[in-house]
Design a protein around this nucleic acid. Sequence first.
DNA 1: TTTAGGG
DNA 2: CCCTAAA
Length: 642
Amino acid sequence: MVLKKRIYDGGFHGLLPPVIPKAPRSLRKRCLRNKSYADGEISGFELLAAVADKLLQEQESESSTSSVGSKGKGPIGIHEEGAKHEPLEVKVDVKVNSVIPDHHDPASGAESELVAQPTNPDPRLKESPHSENDSGSDHASIVTNSGFVKKVNTSLIMEAIEDKPRNMYDVSVGDIRDEIHPVAVEKQSGGLTSVKTYILKDGLKPCVHTGVSNKSYTSADLPYYKDRVRGACLPRDRGNVNINIRDDDEKYFRYNNRNNTRLRAFGSRSRAGYRRMRKIMPSRYWKVARKLNEYELQNGTSDRVKSFYHKRKKICMREWFQADAAVKRRKLFHNSSKNSYIKEASSESMSNLVKFSIKSFKVPELYVEVPETETVGSLKRSVMEAVKAILHGKLHVGVVVQGKKVRDDNRTLQQSGISQKCNLETVGFTLESSLPEVSPFLAREETPSCNVQQWLSRPIIDGCFSSSSSGPPPLATSLDNHLEKNEESTTFAAEGTEVMTQEPMEDSKALVVVPPLDAEVLSVVPFSEKSSKRYEFSQRRTRRPFSVSEVEALVEAVEILGAGRWRDVKMRAFGDANHRTYVDLKDKWKTLVHTASISPQQRRGEPVPQNLLDRVLVAHAYWSQHQTKQPAKNQKPLEAQM
DNA sequence: TTTAGGG
DNA sequence: CCCTAAA
């Protein structure tokens, strides 16, 4: 656990180069070892070393993490400045291919995904779950690609080390990706304002920038880091920037710990209502309410996650990532089989490269509540918590095209309206957190307050650095539980146990129980909960015009079943079309009737054969006079007429 | 959860 | 397509 925490912190703040530099050595080695330890075996020595490294890193990272500036305009207070820093603009030519041959999915532009859509389940993943085992070597290679990547690598490495011992999970490419995203995000938040990401499809993938690699985290990162630090402040600034912490030392630790804890908390949370996910979305459950200004969270991801969580509710963040990846893979797999169109599209897109220049990410809004009596320092802390919560949480990158979020990860860029031809200006990337998604706890109880409290308390508690770092891993579990409501905690524990059994994870335990010192801590109130704006994050589904064949199927079904029995119509004609709900069919019928009643010149979109429209009119007229709702009796009259 | 409608 | 009131 400790390691994880660290890693996250490092990732968050530490993504910055400085952090890495100091701990690099051990980390690297560990990374390598981790691979070897993939089985989960670790020597005591290793553990000690790991702990030591963490500590070192934390210190460093803290110093380095100043990127998140209080000055920042962004909700989180991200410095825009950072965005402009050259360092930030790291051209990431992600050519993972060489590194991760196995994962690479020919069908999809894996590369691009790595950068742009890390969160999305990569086709590759599904294909080569086992391949993930590749360990450090791969990571290393990835890291080398660019400064940006490097950072990521660092974090990755860290994780890898930790995880393996605990989780037994192998570090998979997918994992890497996931982490990468977060990292990227962090950077941004930290101040990396702009990252130019070039997504290369197809042939381009092979290219890898090795030049940077040699420099090591330090060289590439440092500049960046330095800039920020200088501009903003010294290491301590981190406190300031992030959330000013008056007591630097301890607080740093705290933060770190908190973060870790929090991560866990999130991770532990399972997703309950699978279906609900879409609507309810994460937002509600976010402890730190955040709101994507313009975009919503990706539902799709959450959905995937949900299923996964049902099985494993208690999972450390890292694990989460992995788990998520796994889920995604599965899902992809399914989708792939179902959606032929996707395949087609993908194949087509293969030949076209689309270059993305990402200057900034949309960051979800953070909502923080702090009593007037609280100190500025506490406010900062609260904000920091919120930020951390987001960053620590599983981050996802959302793709927005023309203001619409592209949910379907399986869609090709072309299908999503992203092409060389299109105006890439209309393509945006957002940072999304999966955490907000239904957490087990929340799902059970929708009592925001509890959650909030937990939230607050946890971080703080976890915050105890000493405990976390030195504390016996086993305790962690109890900790979490304590923090949460008993019920929840219990559940949590239970779930965690299960998970544990399957895959020994010390992470969960890693957290040290510390008295909730900071009850004082300002509470970060989940935005959604308070505002009750459930749909803040909801995304509008991508538009999927009905094809003629679909219209025909609809018409036929309505002719037989009547208008009004949409559920039956759905089952009959679109039983296998998950993207067509009965509401959709009802709406479509409505539009069909309207379309049929207007002149052809007034019609838009793909023309519907007149014969179908005629049938629509007939059926509509018929069922208007015959109670649609009558179950099976009236069904055939229409047909008879026909 | 479904229907039915308005937006 | 979304969002909701009703059923």
